Deep mutational scan, measured.
Amino acid sequence: MPSETPQAEVGPTGCPHRSGPHSAKGSLEKGSPEDKEAKEPLWIRPDAPSRCTWQLGRPASESPHHHTAPAKSPKILPDILKKIGDTPMVRINKIGKKFGLKCELLAKCEFFNAGGSVKDRISLRMIEDAERDGTLKPGDTIIEPTSGNTGIGLALAAAVRGYRCIIVMPEKMSSEKVDVLRALGAEIVRTPTNARFDSPESHVGVAWRLKNEIPNSHILDQYRNASNPLAHYDTTADEILQQCDGKLDMLVASVGTGGTITGIARKLKEKCPGCRIIGVDPEGSILAEPEELNQTEQTTYEVEGIGYDFIPTVLDRTVVDKWFKSNDEEAFTFARMLIAQEGLLCGGSAGSTVAVAVKAAQELQEGQRCVVILPDSVRNYMTKFLSDRWMLQKGFLKEEDLTEKKPWWWHLRVQELGLSAPLTVLPTITCGHTIEILREKGFDQAPVVDEAGVILGMVTLGNMLSSLLAGKVQPSDQVGKVIYKQFKQIRLTDTLGRLSHILEMDHFALVV
Protein backbone atom coordinates (compact mmCIF):
# COMPACT_ATOMS: atom_id res chain seq x y z
CA MET A 1 0.00 0.00 0.00
CA PRO A 2 1.46 3.38 -0.95
CA SER A 3 2.14 6.01 1.69
CA GLU A 4 0.47 8.58 -0.54
CA THR A 5 -3.22 7.88 -0.95
CA PRO A 6 -4.36 7.56 -4.56
CA GLN A 7 -7.90 8.47 -5.51
CA ALA A 8 -9.95 5.39 -6.31
CA GLU A 9 -11.06 5.38 -9.92
CA VAL A 10 -14.78 5.39 -10.62
CA GLY A 11 -16.40 3.16 -13.21
CA PRO A 12 -19.03 4.43 -15.58
CA THR A 13 -22.09 2.52 -14.35
CA GLY A 14 -23.49 0.42 -11.52
CA CYS A 15 -23.14 0.57 -7.77
CA PRO A 16 -19.76 1.25 -6.14
CA HIS A 17 -20.21 -1.25 -3.36
CA ARG A 18 -20.43 -4.54 -5.20
CA SER A 19 -19.28 -7.42 -3.06
CA GLY A 20 -16.32 -9.40 -4.23
CA PRO A 21 -12.77 -8.55 -5.29
CA HIS A 22 -12.46 -4.92 -6.29
CA SER A 23 -11.00 -3.78 -9.54
CA ALA A 24 -9.33 -0.47 -10.12
CA LYS A 25 -12.79 0.76 -11.10
CA GLY A 26 -14.25 -0.27 -7.75
CA SER A 27 -16.59 -2.95 -9.13
CA LEU A 28 -16.46 -6.64 -9.98
CA GLU A 29 -13.79 -7.49 -12.50
CA LYS A 30 -13.97 -10.74 -14.44
CA GLY A 31 -11.16 -12.10 -16.56
CA SER A 32 -7.96 -14.08 -16.46
CA PRO A 33 -5.59 -14.07 -13.44
CA GLU A 34 -3.14 -12.12 -15.58
CA ASP A 35 -5.78 -9.45 -16.24
CA LYS A 36 -6.58 -9.21 -12.54
CA GLU A 37 -2.93 -8.96 -11.59
CA ALA A 38 -2.48 -6.14 -14.07
CA LYS A 39 -5.63 -4.23 -13.12
CA GLU A 40 -6.12 -4.80 -9.41
CA PRO A 41 -4.89 -1.86 -7.30
CA LEU A 42 -2.69 -2.01 -4.23
CA TRP A 43 -5.63 -0.77 -2.21
CA ILE A 44 -8.97 1.01 -2.50
CA ARG A 45 -9.87 3.95 -0.31
CA PRO A 46 -12.57 3.19 2.29
CA ASP A 47 -13.86 6.74 1.78
CA ALA A 48 -14.13 6.61 -2.03
CA PRO A 49 -17.06 8.68 -3.36
CA SER A 50 -20.30 6.73 -3.40
CA ARG A 51 -21.96 5.93 -6.71
CA CYS A 52 -25.08 4.49 -5.10
CA THR A 53 -28.21 5.13 -7.17
CA TRP A 54 -30.77 5.05 -4.32
CA GLN A 55 -33.18 7.97 -4.29
CA LEU A 56 -36.22 8.53 -2.12
CA GLY A 57 -39.29 7.68 -4.20
CA ARG A 58 -37.43 5.64 -6.81
CA PRO A 59 -39.17 2.30 -7.58
CA ALA A 60 -37.63 -0.73 -5.87
CA SER A 61 -37.69 -2.54 -9.21
CA GLU A 62 -34.89 -0.25 -10.42
CA SER A 63 -32.49 -1.39 -7.67
CA PRO A 64 -29.38 -3.13 -9.09
CA HIS A 65 -29.10 -5.31 -5.98
CA HIS A 66 -30.39 -8.69 -4.87
CA HIS A 67 -32.86 -8.13 -2.03
CA THR A 68 -33.98 -10.46 0.75
CA ALA A 69 -36.86 -10.38 3.21
CA PRO A 70 -36.88 -11.32 6.91
CA ALA A 71 -37.66 -15.03 7.22
CA LYS A 72 -39.44 -16.75 10.08
CA SER A 73 -37.10 -19.05 12.03
CA PRO A 74 -37.83 -22.79 12.09
CA LYS A 75 -38.19 -24.57 15.43
CA ILE A 76 -34.82 -26.26 14.92
CA LEU A 77 -32.15 -24.14 13.26
CA PRO A 78 -29.94 -25.85 10.63
CA ASP A 79 -26.92 -23.90 11.89
CA ILE A 80 -26.15 -20.92 14.12
CA LEU A 81 -26.17 -18.48 11.19
CA LYS A 82 -29.97 -18.75 11.18
CA LYS A 83 -29.91 -17.02 14.58
CA ILE A 84 -28.81 -13.78 12.93
CA GLY A 85 -31.62 -11.25 12.72
CA ASP A 86 -35.12 -11.21 14.22
CA THR A 87 -33.79 -9.47 17.35
CA PRO A 88 -36.21 -8.33 20.08
CA MET A 89 -37.63 -4.86 20.62
CA VAL A 90 -37.67 -4.07 24.35
CA ARG A 91 -39.30 -1.18 26.20
CA ILE A 92 -36.93 0.94 28.31
CA ASN A 93 -39.02 1.67 31.39
CA LYS A 94 -36.93 3.54 33.95
CA ILE A 95 -34.30 5.61 32.15
CA GLY A 96 -36.77 7.53 29.98
CA LYS A 97 -38.83 8.53 33.01
CA LYS A 98 -35.69 9.44 34.96
CA PHE A 99 -34.75 11.99 32.29
CA GLY A 100 -38.25 13.35 31.85
CA LEU A 101 -39.20 11.81 28.51
CA LYS A 102 -42.90 11.88 27.68
CA CYS A 103 -42.58 9.48 24.74
CA GLU A 104 -42.20 5.71 24.70
CA LEU A 105 -38.54 4.62 24.52
CA LEU A 106 -37.83 1.28 22.82
CA ALA A 107 -34.54 -0.60 22.32
CA LYS A 108 -33.74 -2.80 19.31
CA CYS A 109 -31.43 -5.30 21.04
CA GLU A 110 -28.89 -6.32 18.39
CA PHE A 111 -26.72 -8.14 20.93
CA PHE A 112 -29.18 -11.05 20.60
CA ASN A 113 -27.63 -11.93 17.24
CA ALA A 114 -25.59 -15.15 17.20
CA GLY A 115 -22.20 -13.42 17.42
CA GLY A 116 -23.39 -10.78 19.86
CA SER A 117 -23.69 -7.68 17.68
CA VAL A 118 -25.46 -5.86 14.87
CA LYS A 119 -22.43 -6.60 12.68
CA ASP A 120 -23.45 -10.26 12.39
CA ARG A 121 -26.09 -9.12 9.89
CA ILE A 122 -23.65 -7.48 7.48
CA SER A 123 -21.01 -10.19 7.91
CA LEU A 124 -23.38 -12.93 6.81
CA ARG A 125 -24.87 -10.78 4.05
CA MET A 126 -21.44 -9.88 2.60
CA ILE A 127 -20.42 -13.55 2.56
CA GLU A 128 -23.71 -14.74 1.05
CA ASP A 129 -23.61 -12.09 -1.68
CA ALA A 130 -19.96 -12.90 -2.45
CA GLU A 131 -20.82 -16.60 -2.69
CA ARG A 132 -23.82 -15.84 -4.89
CA ASP A 133 -21.78 -13.86 -7.44
CA GLY A 134 -18.96 -16.42 -7.47
CA THR A 135 -16.35 -14.30 -5.72
CA LEU A 136 -15.94 -16.49 -2.63
CA LYS A 137 -15.09 -20.12 -3.31
CA PRO A 138 -14.36 -23.06 -0.99
CA GLY A 139 -10.89 -22.75 0.53
CA ASP A 140 -10.63 -18.98 0.01
CA THR A 141 -9.41 -16.54 2.66
CA ILE A 142 -11.46 -13.66 4.10
CA ILE A 143 -9.49 -10.63 5.34
CA GLU A 144 -11.19 -7.68 7.02
CA PRO A 145 -10.07 -4.48 8.77
CA THR A 146 -12.47 -4.01 11.69
CA SER A 147 -12.94 -2.70 15.21
CA GLY A 148 -13.82 -6.26 16.19
CA ASN A 149 -17.56 -6.89 15.87
CA THR A 150 -17.55 -7.31 12.09
CA GLY A 151 -14.54 -9.58 12.58
CA ILE A 152 -16.46 -11.72 15.05
CA GLY A 153 -19.41 -11.94 12.66
CA LEU A 154 -17.14 -12.89 9.75
CA ALA A 155 -15.18 -15.39 11.86
CA LEU A 156 -18.44 -16.98 13.01
CA ALA A 157 -19.70 -17.34 9.45
CA ALA A 158 -16.27 -18.47 8.22
CA ALA A 159 -16.18 -21.19 10.89
CA VAL A 160 -19.55 -22.51 9.71
CA ARG A 161 -18.83 -22.09 5.99
CA GLY A 162 -15.23 -23.31 6.10
CA TYR A 163 -13.21 -20.24 5.10
CA ARG A 164 -9.88 -19.08 6.47
CA CYS A 165 -10.38 -15.75 8.26
CA ILE A 166 -7.80 -13.04 9.04
CA ILE A 167 -8.92 -10.05 11.12
CA VAL A 168 -6.89 -6.82 11.28
CA MET A 169 -7.83 -4.58 14.21
CA PRO A 170 -6.39 -1.60 16.13
CA GLU A 171 -4.65 -2.20 19.45
CA LYS A 172 -7.26 -0.26 21.46
CA MET A 173 -9.92 -2.91 20.88
CA SER A 174 -10.74 -5.09 23.86
CA SER A 175 -8.98 -8.32 24.77
CA GLU A 176 -12.39 -10.01 24.96
CA LYS A 177 -12.90 -9.44 21.23
CA VAL A 178 -9.48 -10.94 20.54
CA ASP A 179 -10.26 -14.00 22.69
CA VAL A 180 -13.58 -14.60 20.94
CA LEU A 181 -11.96 -14.23 17.51
CA ARG A 182 -9.24 -16.73 18.41
CA ALA A 183 -11.82 -19.17 19.76
CA LEU A 184 -13.64 -18.96 16.41
CA GLY A 185 -10.41 -19.86 14.62
CA ALA A 186 -9.59 -16.44 13.18
CA GLU A 187 -6.04 -15.21 12.77
CA ILE A 188 -5.51 -11.74 14.27
CA VAL A 189 -3.19 -8.90 13.31
CA ARG A 190 -3.04 -5.80 15.55
CA THR A 191 -2.20 -2.29 14.32
CA PRO A 192 -1.40 1.02 16.08
CA THR A 193 -4.53 2.78 17.32
CA ASN A 194 -3.25 6.23 16.37
CA ALA A 195 -2.37 5.32 12.75
CA ARG A 196 -4.38 7.32 10.20
CA PHE A 197 -6.70 5.22 8.06
CA ASP A 198 -4.62 5.99 4.93
CA SER A 199 -1.33 5.03 6.58
CA PRO A 200 0.34 1.74 5.56
CA GLU A 201 0.39 0.87 9.29
CA SER A 202 -3.38 1.31 9.78
CA HIS A 203 -5.78 -1.63 10.01
CA VAL A 204 -7.01 -0.74 6.52
CA GLY A 205 -3.48 -0.50 5.10
CA VAL A 206 -2.27 -3.74 6.68
CA ALA A 207 -5.37 -5.63 5.51
CA TRP A 208 -4.77 -4.58 1.90
CA ARG A 209 -1.09 -5.52 2.14
CA LEU A 210 -2.09 -9.00 3.33
CA LYS A 211 -4.64 -9.30 0.53
CA ASN A 212 -1.95 -8.50 -2.04
CA GLU A 213 0.32 -11.18 -0.54
CA ILE A 214 -2.13 -14.06 0.10
CA PRO A 215 -3.52 -15.98 -2.91
CA ASN A 216 -7.31 -16.34 -3.22
CA SER A 217 -7.93 -13.82 -0.47
CA HIS A 218 -10.70 -11.23 -0.39
CA ILE A 219 -11.45 -8.07 1.55
CA LEU A 220 -15.24 -7.91 1.65
CA ASP A 221 -14.76 -4.28 2.69
CA GLN A 222 -17.55 -3.22 5.02
CA TYR A 223 -16.66 0.43 4.34
CA ARG A 224 -17.60 0.18 0.64
CA ASN A 225 -19.72 -2.94 0.29
CA ALA A 226 -23.39 -2.36 -0.56
CA SER A 227 -24.24 -5.53 1.36
CA ASN A 228 -23.61 -3.52 4.54
CA PRO A 229 -26.50 -1.03 4.28
CA LEU A 230 -28.57 -3.54 2.28
CA ALA A 231 -28.58 -5.97 5.21
CA HIS A 232 -30.26 -3.31 7.33
CA TYR A 233 -32.51 -1.98 4.56
CA ASP A 234 -33.85 -5.48 3.87
CA THR A 235 -34.07 -6.93 7.40
CA THR A 236 -33.33 -4.65 10.36
CA ALA A 237 -35.57 -1.83 9.13
CA ASP A 238 -38.40 -4.21 8.21
CA GLU A 239 -38.20 -5.83 11.65
CA ILE A 240 -38.44 -2.41 13.31
CA LEU A 241 -41.47 -1.46 11.20
CA GLN A 242 -43.19 -4.77 11.96
CA GLN A 243 -42.44 -4.61 15.68
CA CYS A 244 -43.71 -1.02 15.88
CA ASP A 245 -46.69 -1.62 13.57
CA GLY A 246 -45.24 1.08 11.34
CA LYS A 247 -45.57 3.71 14.07
CA LEU A 248 -42.36 5.41 15.20
CA ASP A 249 -41.41 9.07 15.40
CA MET A 250 -37.66 8.96 15.98
CA LEU A 251 -34.80 6.52 15.48
CA VAL A 252 -31.43 7.03 17.20
CA ALA A 253 -28.34 5.09 16.10
CA SER A 254 -24.62 5.44 16.74
CA VAL A 255 -22.51 5.52 13.58
CA GLY A 256 -19.35 3.65 12.59
CA THR A 257 -19.19 2.47 8.99
CA GLY A 258 -22.63 4.02 8.60
CA GLY A 259 -24.25 0.91 7.16
CA THR A 260 -26.74 0.51 10.02
CA ILE A 261 -28.11 4.05 9.99
CA THR A 262 -28.02 4.30 6.18
CA GLY A 263 -29.93 1.08 5.54
CA ILE A 264 -32.51 1.60 8.28
CA ALA A 265 -33.01 5.30 7.54
CA ARG A 266 -33.55 4.79 3.81
CA LYS A 267 -36.32 2.24 4.46
CA LEU A 268 -37.91 4.40 7.15
CA LYS A 269 -37.85 7.45 4.86
CA GLU A 270 -39.80 5.36 2.35
CA LYS A 271 -42.27 3.73 4.73
CA CYS A 272 -42.49 6.17 7.64
CA PRO A 273 -41.49 9.59 6.25
CA GLY A 274 -42.31 11.51 9.42
CA CYS A 275 -39.72 9.60 11.48
CA ARG A 276 -36.71 11.72 12.45
CA ILE A 277 -33.30 10.03 12.10
CA ILE A 278 -30.71 10.95 14.75
CA GLY A 279 -27.02 10.09 14.26
CA VAL A 280 -24.61 9.67 17.18
CA ASP A 281 -20.90 10.35 16.66
CA PRO A 282 -18.22 10.29 19.42
CA GLU A 283 -16.09 13.34 20.17
CA GLY A 284 -12.84 12.90 18.25
CA SER A 285 -14.60 11.49 15.17
CA ILE A 286 -15.49 13.46 12.03
CA LEU A 287 -18.70 11.78 10.84
CA ALA A 288 -21.20 14.35 12.12
CA GLU A 289 -22.62 17.30 10.22
CA PRO A 290 -22.38 20.27 10.20
CA GLU A 291 -18.58 20.17 10.31
CA GLU A 292 -18.49 22.59 13.28
CA LEU A 293 -19.77 19.77 15.51
CA ASN A 294 -16.50 17.90 14.96
CA GLN A 295 -14.22 20.73 16.10
CA THR A 296 -12.40 19.50 19.20
CA GLU A 297 -8.88 19.06 20.51
CA GLN A 298 -9.72 15.46 21.38
CA THR A 299 -8.40 12.94 18.88
CA THR A 300 -8.91 9.64 20.73
CA TYR A 301 -11.83 8.03 22.54
CA GLU A 302 -12.38 4.82 24.48
CA VAL A 303 -15.80 3.77 23.18
CA GLU A 304 -15.39 1.10 20.50
CA GLY A 305 -17.06 0.42 17.18
CA ILE A 306 -18.28 3.93 16.34
CA GLY A 307 -16.67 7.03 14.85
CA TYR A 308 -13.89 7.34 12.25
CA ASP A 309 -11.32 9.78 10.93
CA PHE A 310 -12.76 9.39 7.41
CA ILE A 311 -16.24 9.23 5.87
CA PRO A 312 -16.95 5.61 4.82
CA THR A 313 -18.34 5.17 1.33
CA VAL A 314 -21.50 3.40 2.55
CA LEU A 315 -22.49 6.23 4.92
CA ASP A 316 -25.28 8.34 3.42
CA ARG A 317 -25.39 11.41 5.64
CA THR A 318 -28.28 12.92 3.65
CA VAL A 319 -30.76 10.60 5.41
CA VAL A 320 -29.71 11.77 8.89
CA ASP A 321 -31.91 14.63 10.11
CA LYS A 322 -29.73 15.68 13.04
CA TRP A 323 -26.37 14.72 14.53
CA PHE A 324 -25.32 14.69 18.18
CA LYS A 325 -21.82 14.23 19.59
CA SER A 326 -21.27 11.91 22.55
CA ASN A 327 -18.39 11.53 25.00
CA ASP A 328 -16.86 8.54 26.75
CA GLU A 329 -18.05 9.40 30.25
CA GLU A 330 -21.73 9.60 29.33
CA ALA A 331 -21.41 6.55 27.05
CA PHE A 332 -20.12 4.29 29.81
CA THR A 333 -22.34 5.82 32.49
CA PHE A 334 -25.46 5.15 30.41
CA ALA A 335 -24.26 1.66 29.41
CA ARG A 336 -23.86 0.76 33.09
CA MET A 337 -27.27 2.33 33.75
CA LEU A 338 -28.88 0.19 31.04
CA ILE A 339 -27.39 -2.90 32.65
CA ALA A 340 -28.21 -2.01 36.27
CA GLN A 341 -31.67 -0.49 35.78
CA GLU A 342 -33.06 -2.19 32.67
CA GLY A 343 -31.17 -5.51 32.68
CA LEU A 344 -29.91 -4.89 29.14
CA LEU A 345 -26.41 -6.38 28.89
CA CYS A 346 -25.16 -3.99 26.20
CA GLY A 347 -21.85 -2.39 25.22
CA GLY A 348 -20.50 1.14 25.43
CA SER A 349 -21.82 2.39 22.08
CA ALA A 350 -25.33 1.53 23.28
CA GLY A 351 -24.68 3.92 26.15
CA SER A 352 -23.74 6.63 23.64
CA THR A 353 -26.98 6.04 21.77
CA VAL A 354 -29.24 6.22 24.82
CA ALA A 355 -27.36 9.23 26.24
CA VAL A 356 -28.22 11.08 23.03
CA ALA A 357 -31.75 9.66 22.84
CA VAL A 358 -32.78 11.16 26.20
CA LYS A 359 -31.71 14.56 24.82
CA ALA A 360 -33.09 14.27 21.30
CA ALA A 361 -36.42 12.75 22.36
CA GLN A 362 -37.24 15.65 24.68
CA GLU A 363 -39.11 17.13 21.70
CA LEU A 364 -41.45 14.11 21.47
CA GLN A 365 -44.81 14.07 23.20
CA GLU A 366 -46.90 11.47 24.98
CA GLY A 367 -48.09 8.84 22.54
CA GLN A 368 -45.00 9.18 20.35
CA ARG A 369 -42.23 6.62 20.08
CA CYS A 370 -38.42 6.67 19.93
CA VAL A 371 -36.42 3.58 18.93
CA VAL A 372 -32.73 3.23 19.82
CA ILE A 373 -30.31 0.68 18.35
CA LEU A 374 -28.22 -1.18 20.94
CA PRO A 375 -25.37 -2.54 18.77
CA ASP A 376 -23.48 -5.07 20.88
CA SER A 377 -23.08 -7.00 24.11
CA VAL A 378 -21.22 -6.29 27.34
CA ARG A 379 -19.38 -9.58 26.70
CA ASN A 380 -16.79 -7.60 24.72
CA TYR A 381 -16.00 -5.20 27.57
CA MET A 382 -15.80 -7.21 30.80
CA THR A 383 -12.35 -5.82 31.60
CA LYS A 384 -13.24 -2.32 30.40
CA PHE A 385 -16.24 -0.19 31.38
CA LEU A 386 -17.83 -3.02 33.37
CA SER A 387 -14.80 -2.88 35.69
CA ASP A 388 -14.85 -0.24 38.45
CA ARG A 389 -11.06 -0.22 38.43
CA TRP A 390 -10.90 0.52 34.71
CA MET A 391 -13.48 3.27 35.10
CA LEU A 392 -11.47 4.80 37.95
CA GLN A 393 -8.21 4.60 36.06
CA LYS A 394 -9.74 6.32 33.03
CA GLY A 395 -11.32 9.02 35.18
CA PHE A 396 -14.95 8.02 34.50
CA LEU A 397 -15.57 7.16 38.17
CA LYS A 398 -14.46 8.90 41.36
CA GLU A 399 -13.16 7.19 44.48
CA GLU A 400 -16.14 8.42 46.48
CA ASP A 401 -18.46 6.60 44.06
CA LEU A 402 -17.23 3.28 45.49
CA THR A 403 -18.03 2.01 48.96
CA GLU A 404 -15.64 -0.94 49.40
CA LYS A 405 -13.18 -0.75 52.30
CA LYS A 406 -9.77 0.64 51.37
CA PRO A 407 -6.31 -0.01 52.95
CA TRP A 408 -4.82 2.58 55.32
CA TRP A 409 -2.57 4.13 52.67
CA TRP A 410 -5.30 4.54 50.02
CA HIS A 411 -5.89 8.28 50.46
CA LEU A 412 -2.25 9.28 50.97
CA ARG A 413 -0.74 11.50 48.27
CA VAL A 414 1.94 10.31 45.87
CA GLN A 415 4.20 13.13 47.08
CA GLU A 416 4.40 11.41 50.48
CA LEU A 417 6.46 8.64 48.88
CA GLY A 418 9.41 11.06 48.70
CA LEU A 419 10.29 10.08 45.13
CA SER A 420 13.53 11.33 43.60
CA ALA A 421 13.89 12.59 40.02
CA PRO A 422 14.17 9.62 37.63
CA LEU A 423 16.97 8.75 35.27
CA THR A 424 16.15 10.10 31.79
CA VAL A 425 17.68 9.47 28.37
CA LEU A 426 17.74 11.47 25.14
CA PRO A 427 16.09 9.95 22.05
CA THR A 428 19.34 10.26 20.09
CA ILE A 429 21.48 7.91 22.17
CA THR A 430 21.82 4.34 20.94
CA CYS A 431 19.93 1.30 22.15
CA GLY A 432 23.21 -0.34 23.15
CA HIS A 433 24.26 2.64 25.28
CA THR A 434 20.80 2.85 26.89
CA ILE A 435 20.94 -0.83 27.88
CA GLU A 436 24.36 -0.25 29.47
CA ILE A 437 23.03 2.74 31.44
CA LEU A 438 19.95 0.91 32.71
CA ARG A 439 21.96 -2.13 33.79
CA GLU A 440 24.58 0.04 35.48
CA LYS A 441 21.95 2.00 37.43
CA GLY A 442 19.78 -1.05 38.16
CA PHE A 443 16.68 0.32 36.40
CA ASP A 444 14.19 -1.53 34.19
CA GLN A 445 12.87 1.55 32.40
CA ALA A 446 13.48 5.26 31.91
CA PRO A 447 11.61 8.25 30.46
CA VAL A 448 12.84 9.52 27.10
CA VAL A 449 12.96 13.33 27.02
CA ASP A 450 14.15 15.83 24.45
CA GLU A 451 16.69 18.56 25.17
CA ALA A 452 13.90 20.88 26.35
CA GLY A 453 12.78 18.30 28.91
CA VAL A 454 9.56 17.35 27.10
CA ILE A 455 8.59 13.73 27.76
CA LEU A 456 8.49 11.75 24.51
CA GLY A 457 7.74 8.34 25.96
CA MET A 458 9.21 5.47 27.96
CA VAL A 459 11.83 2.90 27.12
CA THR A 460 12.08 -0.45 28.90
CA LEU A 461 14.97 -2.86 29.15
CA GLY A 462 12.75 -5.83 28.28
CA ASN A 463 11.34 -4.24 25.14
CA MET A 464 14.78 -3.20 23.89
CA LEU A 465 16.25 -6.66 24.43
CA SER A 466 13.34 -8.41 22.71
CA SER A 467 13.51 -5.96 19.78
CA LEU A 468 17.23 -6.63 19.42
CA LEU A 469 16.75 -10.40 19.54
CA ALA A 470 13.96 -10.19 16.95
CA GLY A 471 16.18 -8.12 14.66
CA LYS A 472 13.78 -5.17 14.67
CA VAL A 473 16.56 -2.80 15.79
CA GLN A 474 20.34 -2.85 16.02
CA PRO A 475 22.46 -1.77 19.04
CA SER A 476 23.58 1.24 16.99
CA ASP A 477 20.00 2.42 16.34
CA GLN A 478 18.67 5.39 18.27
CA VAL A 479 16.56 4.55 21.30
CA GLY A 480 13.77 6.67 19.85
CA LYS A 481 12.86 3.67 17.67
CA VAL A 482 11.74 1.56 20.64
CA ILE A 483 9.94 4.02 22.92
CA TYR A 484 6.44 3.51 24.27
CA LYS A 485 4.52 6.63 23.28
CA GLN A 486 1.43 5.68 25.27
CA PHE A 487 1.91 5.73 29.01
CA LYS A 488 -0.02 6.71 32.11
CA GLN A 489 0.79 9.92 33.97
CA ILE A 490 0.03 10.70 37.58
CA ARG A 491 0.49 13.87 39.63
CA LEU A 492 2.15 14.26 43.02
CA THR A 493 -1.21 15.37 44.40
CA ASP A 494 -3.01 12.20 43.25
CA THR A 495 -3.74 9.47 45.77
CA LEU A 496 -1.90 6.19 46.14
CA GLY A 497 -5.26 4.55 45.50
CA ARG A 498 -5.35 6.02 42.00
CA LEU A 499 -1.72 4.95 41.46
CA SER A 500 -2.66 1.45 42.64
CA HIS A 501 -5.41 1.19 40.02
CA ILE A 502 -3.01 2.29 37.27
CA LEU A 503 -0.35 -0.24 38.28
CA GLU A 504 -2.92 -3.05 38.27
CA MET A 505 -3.29 -2.52 34.51
CA ASP A 506 0.07 -1.04 33.48
CA HIS A 507 3.67 -1.89 34.31
CA PHE A 508 4.59 1.68 35.23
CA ALA A 509 3.28 5.22 35.62
CA LEU A 510 5.13 8.48 35.16
CA VAL A 511 4.87 11.02 37.99
CA VAL A 512 4.70 14.54 36.52
Rank of each mutant, 00 (worst) to 15 (best):
I142E: 00
I80L: 13
S117H: 04
N93K: 09
K137T: 09
P6F: 07
T235V: 05
G258L: 00
S27V: 14
N194H: 13
W208H: 10
L136R: 00
G274C: 02
E187A: 02
N93E: 03
K271N: 15
R121C: 00
K83N: 13
G185N: 01
Q55W: 10
E213M: 12
E176P: 00
S175W: 09
N149V: 00
S217G: 11
C272D: 10
M169E: 02
R224G: 11
K39F: 04
L136A: 05
E213N: 12
N149W: 00
C244A: 02
A114E: 07
S175P: 05
K269V: 02
R51L: 03
L268T: 04
K75R: 06
K119E: 05
T141N: 10
C52I: 03
L136M: 12
S147A: 07
S202H: 06
S63T: 11
G116L: 06
K137R: 13
P200S: 08
I92A: 03
K269Q: 08
I219W: 02
R51V: 07
P41S: 14
G14R: 06
I167V: 02
T260D: 02
E131M: 04
V252E: 07
S217I: 01
A158T: 05
R125S: 11
W43E: 06
R224M: 07
C109Q: 06
H22L: 09
V204L: 03
K271Y: 08
S254T: 09
R161P: 07
T53L: 05
Y163C: 00
L28G: 10
W54G: 06
I188R: 04
G115M: 07
F112I: 05
R224Q: 09
F112S: 01
R18M: 07
P21I: 04
D249W: 02
I142Y: 00
L184S: 05
G96Y: 04
I44C: 04
V255T: 11
C275K: 00
G148E: 01
P138K: 08
C103S: 06
H17L: 13
G31F: 15
R121N: 01
T150L: 05
T53I: 06
G14P: 11
G148S: 01
L210W: 01
D133W: 12
P170H: 00
T193Y: 09
R45D: 10
S202Q: 07
L248F: 14
D179G: 10
